[in-house]
Computed example of a mutant assay.
Amino acid sequence: MISRRLRETAVAGPFLSVKGLVFGLFILVPFVYTFILTFQRGSLLTGMRWGGLSNYRTVVTDTLFRDALKNTLLFMLVCTPVTLVVSAAVGLLLSSSLRGMAVHRALIYLPSLLSVVATGLIWKVLLDPEQGPLHLLMLRGFGLDVPWLTNGTVAIVLLAFITAWSTCGFYGLVFMAAFNGIDTELLEAARIDGAGPWQVLVQIKLPLIQPVAQVVLALLTINCVQVFDLVFVLTNGAPGTATYTAMWYVYQNAFNGGSVAYAATMSVMLLILTALISALFLARRTGADADA
């Protein structure tokens, strides 16, 4: 028995060592180096020196970082519920037996195949104040000259809706799998007992997919904290600093004349924030499983 385990370990060892090497070089080492950078001051060109907790004290008093967190929070408060509700509705639709569902699934999933940069460029053309089709439709059709990217609040909300549009196809397929995984005998028994479609949805389907919804909600929240690409393509943080998100501010400090050590400090703070959010959702899911 022992020799068999040794042989299995000897066979698996080379494969695991390659994965361990990749993990160490591209994840563990950068993470440790980033954490060490948070205690440094200076720049990579002029040299780093020990700074203790000064970067952390600066983060706490940095008003622009607080504003970036507020913008990120606004983005999250709009994007998360919209994406969750739309994705659940899409998943419910895709799990039905409508004709031509394969085509519908492909079309709904198509935006998720686009890169974030491509998505941003498409919407930038649509919203162009001179020739953008969507802007001209709102202007000539409804008389609304919407400041899509020139008003900070409107721009943040717009970025949230674009993110929801580009990701609801992927999360919709996740919800579709959850709905398809429900035992059909439960649904048939409910219909025999006289439950209507709405009662079946609210009292059976939605409670049964709650674990999947919690996982999707955690992923959405983490992605919202890390939003960067759309800001880079569409607004560059403008107007002013109205669309500065947390990750955009980290990028500005790391690559546009700021401090790499300070950017690393903010990254660690964001990591702690996302870890707390993930732990919260995981704890809620674990508690729900225990009650069940």
Rank of each mutant, 00 (worst) to 15 (best):
R49T: 12
N71P: 07
G143P: 01
R66G: 04
T9W: 15
S278D: 01
L173R: 04
P207N: 03
Y56T: 04
F23L: 15
V146Q: 06
V215L: 13
H104M: 14
I222V: 14
W148Q: 02
A261Q: 06
N180V: 10
W248G: 04
L230Q: 09
A275M: 14
R140Q: 09
L137Y: 11
L84T: 09
A242I: 05
G172Q: 07
V215D: 00
G13E: 04
P147Q: 02
H135Q: 14
M76Q: 07
M247G: 03
D183W: 00
L219Q: 08
S17N: 00
C79F: 13
P211I: 10
L271R: 04
P239E: 01
V231I: 15
T34D: 08
L173Q: 05
Y171H: 11
I222E: 00
Y251A: 10
A118S: 11
G181V: 12
T286E: 10
A177F: 07
W198D: 00
S112H: 13
T38L: 03
D67G: 10
V116P: 04
T38D: 01
L77S: 06
S17T: 11
N180Y: 06
V86R: 03
A177S: 13
L136P: 00
L126R: 02
I108V: 15
V90M: 14
G52R: 09
L28A: 14
R285D: 08
A118L: 12
A102H: 07
A292E: 13
V117E: 06
L159H: 03
L93W: 13
V59L: 15
F65D: 00
G257E: 12
A190F: 05
R5E: 06
Y251S: 07
I204L: 14
A155I: 15
Q40P: 00
P133E: 09
A246F: 08
A254Q: 11
L271S: 14
L136M: 07
L139H: 04
A178Y: 06
T274W: 03
A10L: 15
F255D: 02
C224S: 15
T167I: 13
G287E: 09
F232K: 11
M266F: 02
L187G: 03
M269I: 15
L220V: 08
G287L: 13
I192Y: 06
T221C: 14
S166E: 08
Y109L: 15
L69V: 12
T150H: 07
V202N: 05
N151W: 10
A164W: 08
C79L: 04
V82A: 09
A238D: 00
L37Y: 09
P30I: 05
I277S: 00
S3R: 13
V250T: 12
T63Q: 10
G20M: 13
G120Q: 05
T9V: 10
L173D: 01
L173S: 02
T243D: 04
G169Q: 11
D193Y: 06
D62H: 02
L187T: 02
Q40M: 12
V174H: 02
F255W: 07
A89Y: 10
G194H: 08
L158K: 02
T184Q: 12
K19I: 10
N180I: 06
G196D: 09
L186G: 02
K70T: 13
T38Y: 01
P211E: 06
L273W: 01
A106M: 14
L94T: 02
L114Y: 03
L134V: 13
L110D: 02
L136Q: 04
T241N: 11
L139M: 04
V200M: 12
R49K: 12
L16E: 00
A246Y: 06
V125S: 05
S259C: 09
L126K: 01
W165E: 05
